[in-house]
Design a protein around this nucleic acid. Structure first.
Length: 125
DNA sequence: ATAATGACATGTT
DNA sequence: TAACATGCCATTA
């Protein structure tokens, strides 16, 4: 398994129940701020021990493209079951539920201090 | 090695 | 608001 994939899995597992995180956020926490699309590619193969449904589009909507075991209705259902209010058109108030890691959590992702500071500014942590 | 493929993000229209 | 264009980069073929 690639290092990139392992980092993504670790990060997604750290996202608390009832909160969501954007593909871009996960990529940024992995050290590759512009690899959002790759995060989606990896989520496609996740098992149930990884809360893939908490990873959403930054514009506040469920943007999953259906595959053999998951589609928009399923992701919405899982989110709703955790308390995230998802509308019929699969949109929701992302800022209300967005995962905001503590500085300590960011450090656990093994990033450089300067990069961590940049993230704190970017995501207002 | 080279090229195509996106569960994305952001800036412009 | 919403559609469109462009940049991105790990994976696959």
């Amino acid at each position: 398994m690639s290092s990139f994939k392992e980092r993504i899995i670790t990060i997604v597992r750290s996202v608390p129940k009832g909160t969501v995180v954007s593909y871009g956020q996960v990529a940024a926490y992995a050290g590759l701020a512009r690899a959002a699309r790759q995060v989606g590619f990896i989520m496609r193969e996740m098992e149930e021990d990884v809360p893939w449904w908490r990873v959403v589009n930054n514009s506040g909507r469920v943007s999953i493209q259906g595959n053999w075991n998951a589609d928009k209705p399923l992701q919405s259902k899982l989110l709703v079951s955790e308390g995230v209010l998802v509308n019929d058109d699969f949109t929701f108030a992302i800022e209300k539920y967005r995962f905001r890691p503590t500085e300590q959590q960011l450090r656990s992702y093994q990033l450089e201090d300067s990069y961590i500071q940049a993230l704190i500014v970017k995501y207002n942590l």
